[in-house]
Design a protein around this nucleic acid. Sequence first.
DNA 1: GTCTATAACCCGATAGAC
DNA 2: GTCTATCGGGTTATAGAC
Lengths: 222, 222
Amino acid sequence: MAKVTAATGRTRRTDGAERQQHILRVAVRCFAHSGYHGTSARDIAAAAEVPLSALHYYFSNKEELFIAAFAMEFQRVANQRNQAVQGIEKLSLADLVRGYIAPLLDGDGENDNRDFLRLQSRALDDPQVAKHVFNRVVLPSTQPFLAALQGLFPKTGRADLVRCFRNMTWAVGFAPIDPLYEALTDESPYPEGSRKTRALIDLMVKYHTAGILAVTSRTAKS
Amino acid sequence: MAKVTAATGRTRRTDGAERQQHILRVAVRCFAHSGYHGTSARDIAAAAEVPLSALHYYFSNKEELFIAAFAMEFQRVANQRNQAVQGIEKLSLADLVRGYIAPLLDGDGENDNRDFLRLQSRALDDPQVAKHVFNRVVLPSTQPFLAALQGLFPKTGRADLVRCFRNMTWAVGFAPIDPLYEALTDESPYPEGSRKTRALIDLMVKYHTAGILAVTSRTAKS
DNA sequence: GTCTATAACCCGATAGAC
DNA sequence: GTCTATCGGGTTATAGAC
């Protein structure tokens, strides 16, 4: 409603680039909560306290806004991941898996990653959006992990390694936001406190390390 | 558009119950493809070649239509699953995992389960719909599997077993419809032919059996 | 660059004839 | 039970004043 602050009489954010960032951050929250089709541009404009036309000025349409918001959020998490993995010279499988999983589950201290995880699942809402997002943003960032995995298991076919990688991706992506986990255990799926976070990370690392090992150990026939 | 067949001059389906079923089947396809918010009631009516008001006559509103469509599809798959598991007296972990995974991936001969898997992911589109669908339909059907798992690993905490179960669920649910698998391998994520289907089932059984074993083998500390 | 106002269209749901 | 027609309100996107 009120798009003007009492103090200045001007709009909430004065600098253009900063306002653009502000819109993106709000868009992440809105899209993460209600999905692509479930969020209207008006919802985002209202939540960001900017007029609707500002969204179309900075981002040509709703689809581009979603992709920009997703790309920003994905890059933030990818940076955390890169920090976690770099510096380790000779990676073990467990280190590699932990390097992928841990940043997703314990955040960076300031903001947790629930909105990112939800947003990632929301990218599937629309087939065209999903195609753009996966091809432009997600796909390139998978190459380092897959290359490292292939380096550890040179005799395993790439398709099988991709299956393993995606098993891990989907499971970790939904674990902290799983509505059924809550219904089945009466606990939040998102771990509260560093102790529970560490326990969940350890569980996931154990599970997926063992899964990958089981698939790669005998690659030929069943 | 044309809601009337040339031959009879009457609407496409004459019997009421049959028409209701027809609408449900079409709704599954539509919702599976475009999601809850991405599919309009008009889309479904047009695809089913019935007037829009027929949807509101048989199902009071869009949300109930989605839940009915989901419940029908879920029950079909649950029946396949029960057939696969029953008759096995003393289940091994691998049998249990295979009993869960195989029906999802090889269908029942007539129709494959891709629409079901997509529909399942679409149930997350709207928080309220997700709550209804998970609590009313999905949650009760998980009890037999979880109870059997707990029977195999009585010393492991229930929360950890639920984590394992959901790791498997998410991974298997998205493996056959994963857009990134296609982008990374240039192959369809849905296995074509019985040979590839068997290979995928074997891979998934191996992966998740090993994952569950790794988590349950030492339950105390890392 | 930033706003208001509005165009052009689509949505779910229902009234009421048959 | 089944249809057509429509209501009231929502949507994305843009035109045009400032």
